Computed example of a mutant assay.
Amino acid sequence: MRHIFFLSFLFLILFGCKKANAINDEAYAIQSVQMPAKAENVAYDKKPSPNDAPPPKVDEKIEQKIIKEATLKFETDNLENSFSQIQKAALTSKARIINDSEGKDFATVFRNLTIKVPSQNFDRFISDISKGVSYFEVKTISAEDVTEQYIDLTSRLKTKKKLEERYLEILKKANKVSEILEIEEQISAIREEIESKEGQLKYLESRVSESTVTIEFYKTIPEKEGVKISYGSKLATAIKSGFFSLSDLLISLLSVWPFVILFFVFAYFIRKRLKRRKKE
Rank of each mutant, 00 (worst) to 15 (best):
172 K>E: 14
205 E>F: 07
215 I>A: 03
212 T>A: 08
185 E>G: 11
177 V>W: 13
207 R>C: 05
162 K>R: 14
171 L>I: 09
193 E>I: 13
148 E>P: 01
178 S>I: 11
191 R>C: 01
176 K>M: 08
188 S>M: 07
186 Q>I: 03
144 E>M: 06
166 R>F: 00
208 V>H: 09
161 K>M: 03
214 T>E: 14
150 Y>S: 15
202 K>R: 14
177 V>G: 07
205 E>Y: 02
214 T>H: 12
150 Y>C: 11
208 V>M: 11
196 S>V: 12
142 S>K: 12
186 Q>P: 04
162 K>M: 08
144 E>A: 02
179 E>H: 02
160 K>N: 13
155 S>K: 15
163 L>T: 05
203 Y>E: 08
147 T>D: 08
162 K>G: 05
183 I>K: 00
180 I>W: 07
140 T>C: 03
209 S>G: 03
188 S>R: 11
141 I>C: 05
203 Y>H: 10
218 Y>D: 00
133 V>E: 04
218 Y>R: 11
202 K>I: 14
152 D>P: 01
180 I>F: 02
169 E>G: 13
144 E>S: 09
170 I>V: 15
139 K>H: 06
188 S>G: 07
209 S>C: 03
157 L>G: 08
140 T>V: 10
196 S>L: 13
152 D>L: 13
174 A>N: 01
186 Q>L: 07
148 E>M: 05
162 K>T: 09
143 A>H: 10
186 Q>H: 12
145 D>E: 04
187 I>A: 00
134 S>M: 10
144 E>V: 14
185 E>S: 10
168 L>M: 04
148 E>C: 06
186 Q>M: 06
199 G>I: 10
168 L>A: 05
187 I>E: 01
153 L>V: 05
191 R>K: 13
183 I>E: 00
185 E>C: 01
162 K>Q: 12
132 G>S: 03
146 V>K: 05
183 I>T: 02
145 D>R: 11
158 K>P: 02
189 A>V: 15
182 E>V: 00
192 E>L: 09
197 K>Q: 08
206 S>A: 15
181 L>C: 04
180 I>G: 06
168 L>S: 13
167 Y>W: 04
206 S>I: 10
132 G>L: 07
207 R>G: 01
196 S>I: 12
154 T>E: 15
167 Y>I: 00
163 L>I: 06
177 V>C: 05
213 V>K: 04
157 L>K: 11
134 S>R: 13
200 Q>G: 02
186 Q>N: 12
145 D>N: 07
204 L>D: 04
145 D>C: 10
151 I>D: 06
210 E>V: 01
206 S>Y: 02
222 P>C: 08
181 L>H: 09
217 F>Y: 08
156 R>I: 09
205 E>S: 15
173 K>H: 12
206 S>V: 06
153 L>Q: 14
213 V>S: 03
151 I>W: 02
143 A>Q: 09
211 S>H: 05
169 E>I: 02
160 K>R: 10
161 K>L: 08
216 E>K: 15
171 L>F: 06
191 R>P: 04
212 T>Y: 05
152 D>G: 06
200 Q>P: 10
159 T>K: 07
174 A>I: 02
219 K>Y: 09
223 E>D: 10
221 I>V: 11
181 L>Q: 13
216 E>I: 09
151 I>H: 13
136 F>Q: 07
220 T>K: 14
175 N>W: 14
209 S>R: 14
140 T>R: 07
195 E>M: 13
191 R>L: 00
218 Y>E: 01
218 Y>M: 09
217 F>E: 03
139 K>G: 01
171 L>H: 06
